[in-house]
Amino acid sequence: MAFASWSDFIAMGGYSFYVWLAYGVSLFSVLLLVISTVAKRKKIFKHVEQRLLREQRIKAAENREGTL
């Protein structure tokens, strides 16, 4: 352990701002990347699902026309 206490750890030997800023921004940008990637996957699934539903509705409508 390089630090005697929690507050020492947070203070980072006087460099707290720079160290925590660097770690914070890095984590944040990686998180953004992960979120956008996962969101992309969900979006693709949703699109395909909507397309399938639309096709189903069209088919159903066609069937109804046939019975009339």
Binding site: A2, G14, V19, A22
Partner: peptide, 24 residues
Amino acid sequence: MIWGLAFAPADYQQGDSFRIIYIH
């Protein structure tokens, strides 16, 4: 991260600011 931030010794020249190396 825990090792680098808390357990690695501070650099004798740069102090604790060198801990940025673990992501840089």
